[in-house]
Amino acid sequence: MSAPSQAEPARRSARRSHRASDEGIHYSRWFWPSFTIPASIWLAILFILPLYTVISIAFGTVDPIFRGPLPIYEPWWWSGEQFGRVLDDSFGFYRIVYIHTFEYVIVASALCLVLAYTVAYYVARYGGKRKTLLLALLIAPFFISYLMRMLAWINLLDSEGYINKILTFLHLVPHPIDWLSGRPSTVIMGLVYGYIPYMILPLYAFLDRIDINLLEAGRDLGAGPARTFFRVTLPLSRPGILAALVIVSLPMMGDYYTNNLLSGSPKTTMLGNLIDDAVGSTGQGNKAAAFVLILMALVLIPMLYYMRSTARSLLTR
């Protein structure tokens, strides 16, 4: 085993120097890795340190007088009491919240995928000269804040709002629908509306990169349009689908204001609402941090699946 392991770095070094000498440029071995330094510092300051603080709060204590969270930074003094209690309750009365969250996120992500894929497919394949315009229109929702778009929906979905006016005018419903009465369907609709732009763009980027010759090859080999789509386009766009699903489903898991604004009913409470409630309640900071860690663990599962799938697809190229 020792011989190959010693030979490998030498081979790599030779390949590098060969390539560099081919290009007539010689780089230090630290040149390319140094490009990651700014991002590494950024991540260390704005992600790792805050994350460690959250962990220190989750396993920390509470100020006995003001009831604010007191982070404990030394792991040997950590207490798992609060975290354990939140974990226990997660299998107890909070279970319904987890179920709601997963239901809403899965359904909303699936709807986003269906709607976004068709739009992205059209723009990538048939956008033609209007592709830039269509892309600009797809980006347009980003110009308005998420909060404002949700507030607009409150007026649109109101019992006297435009949606109900149109539905009743067309006699599609006998009387106005009370959309804002704590309906899960309204929360899901809000999530789809809010996050769909984030799904269209990565899907478009992947679909646009698919080599048209591969599609023509499929047709030449006798496959019809549907078969070509399912046997060529869809498999090739799989990494894009996974990336888009990850991009929208992860923030959806922690979303709380969509539910707050469009429902407000305890019957549609999501995991993000629990965190929001705990953050705003005296003495509950540790609980909020514990929820954050549990949420992170939950979203890590689809993230790991995405990373594994991406790594596999890179290996097969």
Binding site: I96, S265, T268, L274
Partner: peptide, 8 residues
């Protein structure tokens, strides 16, 4: 209160 807001 948590049980209430969780919709139990």
């Amino acid at each position: 209160w948590s049980e209430f807001t969780a919709g139990v």
